[in-house]
């Protein structure tokens, strides 16, 4: 089944002569368990697409279906709850609440949903992410790479169906960047999550199962995995 299904999606800003078309009639579907990279030059509409996939913004036209639900048919409050349970975000920077420590940041979506986290699971997760010594530290005391790992930890903690990452390696050096990508791949393989990554780094794109190429708001190529070749 297609976890993400985008149909004729468009988004424009402004009116009249100052109108900017960020997305123009984009359509694609993503099945579960795929690692998808979205590439394109600056201003090609990648971020806008991501925001719309996550229900952060309102499209000017078209539909976004996640797990069969029309995302923009829901009310604002319902969309918030939907996000809480089904979508995970990782941004290029500024992912974490500055006043909460590592552990609390990871648990945050669960707490918003009034659910008590499985302590053992979270513990393990923190261990695996190599954050054990820093679990009580505030984001201001962490390096960029560590902060991104916390963000990924958050995405793994409540296992949303989709993880949307906006240039997650943009602010990191290559070693940390590799780590982030490896972790995201793990999310796909181990936890059957679907990961959509925006990137301009071709190395990252190379790791993906599928690459969507945007230019000027239009989808110009969709290199998906083909069948096996002999």
């Amino acid at each position: 089944m297609n976890v993400i299904s985008v149909d004729g999606l468009s988004k424009s800003y402004g009116t009249g002569t100052t109108q900017v078309k960020a997305l123009h009639d984009v359509s694609f579907s993503i099945p579960q368990g795929q690692f998808v990279a979205v590439v394109g030059a600056s201003g090609s509409g990648k971020s806008t697409l991501l925001h719309l996939l996550g229900g952060l913004d309102k499209p000017s036209g078209g539909y976004v279906h996640i797990d069969g639900d029309n995302l923009y048919g829901l009310k604002e409050k319902e969309r918030a709850v939907f996000r809480r349970r089904k979508i995970g975000f990782i941004f290029q920077s500024y992912n974490l609440i500055p006043v909460l420590n590592v552990e609390e940041n990871i648990q945050l979506p669960l707490l918003l949903d009034h659910r008590q986290p499985d302590k053992a699971y979270i513990n393990d997760l923190i261990h695996t992410l190599g954050l054990h010594e820093r679990r009580k530290h505030l984001p201001s005391e962490l390096s960029g790479g560590q902060q991104q790992r916390v963000a990924i930890g958050r995405a793994l903690a409540y296992r949303p169906a989709i993880v949307l990452a906006d240039e997650p390696t943009g602010n990191l050096d290559s070693a940390n960047g590799r780590e982030v990508i490896d972790l995201l791949k793990l999310a796909v393989h181990q936890y059957h999550q679907t990961v959509v990554v925006i990137t301009h780094d071709m190395n990252v794109a190379a790791e993906a199962d599928r690459v969507l190429n945007l230019q000027d708001g239009k989808l110009i190529s969709d290199t998906s995995s083909q069948g096996r070749l002999v």
């Binding site: 996550g54 952060l56 604002e76 409050k77 918030a80 709850v81 939907f82 996000r83 809480r84 349970r85 979508i87 975000f89 500024y94 992912n95 974490l96 609440i97 500055p98 945050l108 979506p109 918003l112 949903d113 958050r154």
Partner: peptide
């Protein structure tokens, strides 16, 4: 304001 925006992306409702 940015933090509140972040909370919203995590799925906090306006009421929360």
């Amino acid at each position: 304001i940015r933090q509140f925006g972040l909370l919203r992306t995590l799925g906090a409702t306006p009421g929360q």
